[in-house]
Every structure is written in structure tokens, then in C-alpha cells.
Design a protein around this nucleic acid. Structure first.
Lengths: 218, 218
DNA sequence: AAATTCAGTGAACGCTTGTACACTGAATAG
DNA sequence: CTATTCAGTGTACAAGCGTTCACTGAATTT
């Protein structure tokens, strides 16, 4: 297996007339998609400019019309993936959920979004620590922002109204870490979604059990 | 920078007479050390057999006298690193600590061991998700064992004496994940050990706060 | 003392890699 | 209608890769 389906990314040919910049952006997206495809099996650092170009259906040198280096493409991939993550959190935010039901709802939304965008989540969780240089930094940066956003969200809950920013951040961090662990489990076990989801609920439940008794100490 | 110090790993020359197998094992260790050195900056998958051999002070082809492939070396590296991790947990176990003081003690031990074996922890945390194939699987396997061991340890605590195996596993998993997150933070921030340590303590404290109220639900 | 083992050597191989360069030809601008 | 722009092409090159093979020479066995 390996050299059967190539350049499939662009092969959904649209015969309509398109402007030049539109076509360019389409190729750019093909490059991103190609990289996302390949990254799943071999890690971002283990993939070459040439094969990404080939998979996208262009010649290696044309790659440079879109990115100065693979690292630059990687950062673009981080941004794209983080957009997916934010979409998810927005989805969770708009659902008006009771306090206890909230955990169940959140985990369900997580499961749905992970399944709908496996490659994005795969990329993020895999390269979060494994990646090198710019990609890893970009993820760290974005994830830090993300935790801060979640902390603000948490502040709205009755039980947490009086918590300090620092404590909220701690809680948000713990939640995000737990969520990302769950994401990894979901991606690794193809079919045990239910069980993993229940474990995730229990983990979060344990964390939130401590909340009423929390007393911030210097 | 980069090509100044090469083959340093073997350069601590011991002029004593040594048996052949002893010398072989010494070279093997040089290969492991070399890989561990290089893996810090570029990730294991971005590491070539040739440069590892060069760093170890041998010719590329001699590599095969010790490992059949880089993957095999990687698995050996996992075993070596896990040995360090187990040493740490044994260290934590033998310290007879009060329930609340236990968190402080554990975090202190964690900090000490991480600093003393930065490269092992770096390797483990980085390749846990980022790695490819055999290395990642080996880490996953060993870490699963490790969690189970911790669960057994936890069972000895008064507050947890009546917990089911499943619940203990959940708690152990949460602790390990939190610990590994802390390890990553320690490795990334060169000098903020104290602050990171305190955050780690708070995280664990929040988790354990939930323990008394935990009620296992199907 | 002679024979054997085997960790380490060094040249050679066929490939893939990133990148430089001069190019083509359709979409755009004048 | 002509001139310009520029995404994508094709060739070329030096460097690095994993692996092969026949080899050396000191430690070990006989």
C-alpha cells in the first residue's frame, strides 16, 4: 500500500471558471489537506516537502509559491486546527446546560467534533509535544489563549463566581488537559467511543467534586 | 552551532583493560546516550541512523552490531527511561508521608528526578504522542503498566481503601496525566521550578479534594 | 601457538531530500 | 490588442539517507 491513490486532493475537479487568486488559494488548501493526510501516519517532522507537493498534485518547486518552508505550512495548519477547536468550544458555550448535565453535554460535543475533524485533532494532540520548533510553539501559544478563554467562560458559573482569576486558570488548565487526553484516546481507539466518553465524564466529575471545597491558598 | 562537539559520548576514555562484551555494551550505551542527546532538539523521528552513529563515535555500519533499526534503539530508550520513572516512584513510595504532606513530598521528588534525568523525561513526554510506530506503542504499554502500579499504591491509603479497582485506576490515570503535564512544564521552563511546583501541588490538591465525596456511578 | 569470533572500518550503491534556475502559458492590466 | 504578472513546470545538483559487502585486527577459544 502507499502509491495507489495520489494527488487525490485536487482531483475533485471543478470545471467552473475561477479567478487566479481563487485557484491559488485552492492549491494552498490542497497542500494543507495533503499534509494533514500524511501527518497522521508519520508525524509532521517526518514528512517531506516533496511528498506533500506530490500528494497535493503539484511539482515540488511550486510549493514555494505558497509557503517559504514546511514549518510555515505547519503553523498554518495549527491555525486551521485551532479554528476547529474554537468552533467546538463555541458550540459547547451556546448550549444552555444545567450544572451537572453540563459535563455530559460537553463530552458529547467533544466526541462529535473529534469524529468530524479527526485529522485536525490528530495533528494538534500529536504535535503539541512531539512537534519541533515553530509548530510546537504555535500550538503552545494558541492553547494558552484557549485556556484563558475557557477560564472566562468558567467565571460565569455560580459555583465559580468568587474564584480568583488564577484559580480559574488552574481549573481551566486541568479541564483542557483532561479533554486533550480524552481526544487522544478517542483517536487511538477506533470504536470504543462510548466507554471513553464515560471515562471522560467520570474524570471531569471527580475534578468538579473538589470545586465546592476549594480554598485558595497562597 | 552544531558541529563543534562531536563524538563526545565516548571521549571519556577509560584506559583500563576491558572484556570484549564489556566494550560492546559500552558502545551500545554510547549509542543510547547519543540518541538521547539528539532527540531533545529534533524529535526521535527526525533522527537519522548515521548521525546517531557519528555522535556515538562509530561508523554507520557498526550501528547494526547493536540494533537492527532505529526503532529498536527507540524501544531500548523507552525501557531505559521507564526504569528512571520507576526509580522515582519507588523513591516516592518509601517516603512515609502524611496524607496532606504527601502531595508536597511527591511534587518535590518529581522535581528532583526530572532535573536529574532531564533527557529521559524529555524523551518520554515528547515521544508519548509525537512518536511513530513502535516507540509510541512501547511508551503507551509501559505507561499503562505504570498507572496500574500506581493504582495499587493508592489502594493503601485510608481514604481510598473502599474504592473499586476501576475507580482507583481512574484516579491514578488522572494523577499520572497531571504529573506528566508538570514534567513537560518543568522541561520547558528552565528556571521557574518553584512556581511550576506550586501549580502542580494545587492541581493535585484540587483532584484530591473530590476524593471524599466520590460516589462511583455505573 | 594457531584458529576463530566479531565489533568496528571504509567504499560503494541507489534513493530521496531541499533548493536554484530558466521556462511556459493562461489570467489579468494597460 | 498588447504587455505584464505569476502559479505551476522540468531539469539539475549537491548532500544526506539506509543498507550491502568485503575487510581488519584485537580479544577469545581451541
Amino acid at each position: 500500500m502507499g502509491d495507489t491513490a495520489e494527488a487525490i486532493t485536487l482531483s475533485v475537479v471543478t470545471t467552473e471558471p475561477v479567478s487566479r487568486q481563487e485557484r491559488k488559494q485552492r492549491t494552498r488548501q490542497a497542500l494543507l489537506d495533503a499534509a494533514l493526510d500524511l501527518v497522521a501516519e508519520r508525524g509532521f517532522s517526518g514528512l517531506s516537502l516533496r511528498e506533500v507537493a506530490k500528494q497535493a498534485g503539484i511539482v515540488p518547486t511550486a510549493f514555494y509559491r505558497h509557503f517559504a518552508s514546511m514549518d510555515e505550512l505547519g503553523v498554518a495548519l495549527v491555525e486551521e486546527s485551532m479554528r476547529t477547536l474554537r468552533t467546538m468550544i463555541r458550540s459547547a458555550r451556546t448550549k444552555p446546560a444545567a450544572y451537572n448535565d453540563m459535563i455530559k453535554t460537553s463530552v458529547r460535543i467533544l466526541r462529535e467534533h473529534v469524529r468530524a475533524h479527526e485529522d485536525h485533532f490528530h495533528f494538534l494532540t500529536r504535535e503539541r509535544y512531539g512537534g519541533t520548533g515553530p509548530v510546537r510553539q504555535a500550538i503552545a501559544f494558541e492553547l494558552k489563549l484557549f485556556v484563558s478563554e475557557l477560564a472566562v467562560d468558567l467565571a460565569r458559573f455560580d459555583n465559580l463566581r468568587e474564584w480568583s482569576t488564577e484559580d480559574l486558570h488552574l481549573l481551566a488548565d486541568l479541564i483542557v488537559t483532561t479533554m486533550l487526553t480524552t481526544v487522544l484516546e478517542l483517536l487511538e481507539a477506533p470504536s470504543r467511543d462510548d466507554e471513553i466518553g464515560r471515562t471522560a465524564e467520570r474524570r471531569l466529575r471527580l475534578i468538579f467534586l473538589g470545586v465546592p471545597n476549594w480554598r485558595s491558598v497562597p
